[in-house]
Design a protein around this nucleic acid. Structure first.
Lengths: 275, 275
DNA sequence: CGTCCTTTTGATGCCGGTCAATGGATGTGG
DNA sequence: CCACATCCATTGACCGGCATCAAAAGGACG
């Protein structure tokens, strides 16, 4: 079980974090791939929103307070925080995690561009886990109170918000099945394929390839494995001609066999409802 | 990994299940312990509701269509079902689970008396897992449409419903941490203590003891262990004087040491918010 | 009083965690 | 542009936890 390298160092929220104040437009240099973010400042550019959560996207847009940026490896949401804001992930990835007292870490959820963070603003409680950035991250910040108000006036919006909350549960459910009852190779395959399909539904894939900014340590903590063992299994998967993950990139060489190993008959099912 | 003993046999919903039609009052012989159910036909008898979800209890009461009863070991909710009804568990326990194609089973959630089943009625989608009864089960059946309507008119109710949905996620999160990053004894202790505190918050404990209708096979499938190994570990825990689980009963012999092994400093935290 | 399910115990072996060490890649200050 | 520090990926050795297989011994029940 991997001890988090920076367990104690980051446990407390820094009193004066080096975050950009909310601004009218996102800062930082323009990403190479325009598809990867909402470079025009609109949440509506994301396929996942326009396809599945149009009302949510509009509401987030209306309640928008500005943008925020965090460098790579920053824990920017802390367990216990009360969410007065709702975030939309524009650039970069993120993951939610919990630490045990001795430093063991379980990663709960991987967030991709387009995902909404801080949904606990709707359940009226504090966040129950930390969230850390993977790569430099740009967030769209929306006012939670306005979102809640909008929900009261628009039942379609409310339904979609509840749906988003439910999706968090579904993802955890899938992860639990993988860790609890799938073999390690199956679990890894399912994990990777889920990420790939999530990116595909957002038009962030390139044929059978996509970016993979997660370190093996992060993947291991998501899968309940040791980093060393995960490393060996990834090599195994590559030797078997199924998938290769290296240098920030993932390529699926044999989609059919890969999906079969992941225990998924029709991979398309993953891309549809923003699972 | 345990193959479900009755995997294929129960996969399909029986066309004509032997369920009691919704009736004005619950049928069946009166349970021995009055505290264990809503024998007076009111959801309001449950501590968890009166303490945390008063609005929900009232709404479920108002939208009540009747009662339903299932024998032990019955799968009474099926993956794919659209929920037109919301259930309140009166008597007996239940668990949600998923089966892999080859019969491996992961149990997702244990439902105790007082828990609300079928919350997917609010996220507007079909259920994504099966639910099976543990022991004979009595359910209060409430109309989902009326519940949804009530939510639109009562924001407090809505908040509490969303809270209930969120609690399902939190429980999965805890289970995932246990399976992924806790040692087996820790995971078992956490699992058992969580159940105990859940029962305690409902006034269903007797000092340091409570009923434990789950078979070791079920517990193993919840914990991601084999039944044999779980059996050995349970004996280990008993030999260490921490807890004993047998013949449908659980006794915590050393609460402090047990809580410590479960990784929980203050066990009271578990009983408060219906976690 | 068989039948079925659950619990229990033993033997065997491998998956996967832990420890340790090396190489590669990136970044930083001088 | 190089020395050094850091983080990440990689590989090997070791071995213990836990699954698997097998089988016996309760219970529970019709």
């Amino acid at each position: 079980m991997a001890l988090s390298n920076k367990a104690e160092g980051l446990r407390q929220r820094p009193s004066n974090s080096h975050i950009d104040k909310a601004t009218a437009q996102p800062k930082g240099k323009k990403p190479k791939d325009k598809r990867a973010n909402g470079a025009d400042g609109s949440v509506l550019r994301f396929n996942c929103f326009t396809a599945n959560s149009h009302e949510v996207a509009s509401a987030l847009q209306s309640a928008r307070k500005g943008f925020r940026k965090y460098p790579s490896g920053t824990t920017f949401l802390y367990e216990g925080d009360i969410m007065n804001e709702v975030f939309t992930l524009f650039t970069g990835w993120a993951f939610g995690y919990k630490l045990l007292e001795d430093g063991r870490r379980q990663i709960l959820n991987i967030y991709l561009p387009g995902d909404v963070l801080g949904l606990s603003a709707f359940s009226g409680t504090f966040i129950d886990h930390d969230v850390e950035s993977v790569g430099s991250v740009q967030l769209c910040v929306s006012d939670a109170a306005r979102m809640r108000l909008a929900c009261r006036q628009n039942s379609v919006l409310l339904d979609q918000i509840i749906r988003l909350i439910d999706i968090e549960r579904i993802k955890l459910q899938q992860r639990l099945i993988g860790v609890g009852r799938r073999s390690s190779p199956e679990s890894i395959a399912h994990f990777l394929l889920t990420l790939f399909m999530g990116l595909k539904s957002r038009d962030l894939t390139y044929g059978n390839a996509c970016t993979m900014p997660l370190t093996q340590t992060v993947m291991a903590d998501a899968l309940g494995l040791s980093a060393e063992h995960l490393n060996r299994l990834l090599h195994q998967l590559r030797d078997d001609g199924l998938v290769s993950v290296s240098r920030g990139k993932m390529v699926i060489h044999d989609p059919a066999a890969f999906a079969k190993m992941a225990g998924i008959d029709d991979p398309e099912t993953l891309s549809q409802p923003l699972l």
